[in-house]
Amino acid sequence: MNPGNNEAPHRCGSVAVVGRPNVGKSTLVNALVGAKVSIVSNRPQTTRHRLLGIATVPGGQMLLVDTPGLHREQGRFKASAMSRVMNRTARGAVEDVDAAVLVVEAGRWDEEDTLAFNVLHDAGVPVVLVVNKVDRLKDKTTLLPFLAEVAKDRDFAAVHPISALKRKGLDDLVADILAQLPEAPPVYDEDEITDRSQRFLAGELVREQLMRQLGDELPYATTVEIERFAEDGALLRIGAVIWVEREGQKPIVIGKGGARLREIGSKARQQMERLFGRKVFLETWVRVREGWSDDEAALKAFGYGQE
């Protein structure tokens, strides 16, 4: 008897990772891929693009589509072109996928979670509910009642309480995601982790530091454009322009004597070297483009909404 006949079939398919802002979607994608393909910060709307994370596991390959947080257009994001583009990107990500993961925060379900669930329900794809950040739940006895309440009258293929940050509960989650995918050979080689270029990832790593190091408002007025990306022997030479919306924002990004810009560049360079596995020489500049985040043409020029 050929022992291969008893092996489970290989599964492969696309999985939209959806949820409101700041629930840990990108952290989950990185944990499942086993490498950093999506930038993360503690600020909502860190993810602005649809990004593919490729998770190759025993028995299958999950093509994880990380998305911007679905949100109601209010407050900081009210009616801006950026807000509209991110919502369109998130909604478009559920088209033509085989399954979806809805990520929510343990102990919290609000109207934006309902919005995300309804988008997935309308898409008609099987939905695995991921209840993230269970490690932060102070009263663990509230978890089971919360899971029961959230699952009531909602059709989930499976429900998984996890901690993406600590990588707890992921093995069972992977098994249930794979169960929703069709039998198919892998699409990508085992060592591939994303379909995005190193150039794109370099820009995202600079923007990650802007999100982490600047104040509450300013990160949303910044974007990054890679002007130069060249190989020089074993060295990568990268030139990054940080765009802001007003002249008065430049000195905030640059900092006293250029200290903040150097810190942003240093941290981003370290992340690039870790991800690319080679030495990086990074130069950064700060320039002004008035009102770019509410200008559809500017957003298109910077690559937003082009997925």
Results as ranks from 00 to 15, higher is better:
M1N: 05
M1F: 07
N6C: 02
E7V: 08
E7K: 10
E7I: 05
P21V: 13
V23K: 09
V23E: 10
S26H: 09
L28C: 05
A35W: 01
V40A: 09
P44H: 03
T46N: 06
T47A: 09
L52N: 08
G53Q: 10
T56F: 00
Q61K: 11
M62I: 13
L63A: 12
L64F: 03
V65Y: 04
G69S: 11
A79R: 12
S80Y: 06
S80A: 04
M82R: 12
S83P: 00
M86P: 03
V97H: 12
D98F: 00
A99H: 06
A100H: 11
A100F: 07
V101I: 15
V101S: 09
G107D: 13
R108E: 14
R108Y: 00
T114K: 09
L115Q: 14
N118Y: 02
V119A: 06
L120N: 10
H121Q: 15
D122I: 03
D122T: 15
V128C: 10
V130S: 06
K133T: 14
K133P: 02
T142E: 14
L144N: 10
P145C: 11
A148S: 11
A148I: 10
V150K: 10
A151D: 11
D153F: 03
R154C: 06
R154Q: 09
A157H: 13
V159H: 04
H160G: 11
P161V: 14
I162Y: 07
K166H: 15
K166I: 04
D171H: 06
L173Q: 08
A175I: 11
L181G: 08
A184C: 02
P186H: 12
P186E: 11
E192F: 07
R196F: 01
Q198W: 04
L201N: 10
A202P: 01
A202R: 07
L205W: 02
Q209R: 15
Q209I: 09
L210R: 01
L210H: 01
R212E: 03
Q213N: 12
L218H: 08
L218Y: 04
P219A: 13
P219F: 07
A221S: 10
E225I: 13
I226M: 10
E227M: 05
R228G: 12
E231P: 00
D232K: 13
A234Y: 00
A234T: 15
L235W: 04
G239N: 09
V241P: 00
V244Y: 06
E245M: 04
Q249M: 03
Q249T: 02
I252R: 02
A259K: 08
R262M: 08
E263F: 00
S266N: 13
K267N: 06
R269N: 09
Q270R: 15
M272K: 05
M272L: 15
M272Q: 06
R274L: 12
R274H: 03
F276R: 09
K279F: 00
W285N: 02
V288S: 11
R289N: 05
W292I: 04
D294V: 03
E296W: 01
E296R: 06
G303N: 04
Y304F: 15
Q306V: 15
Q306I: 14
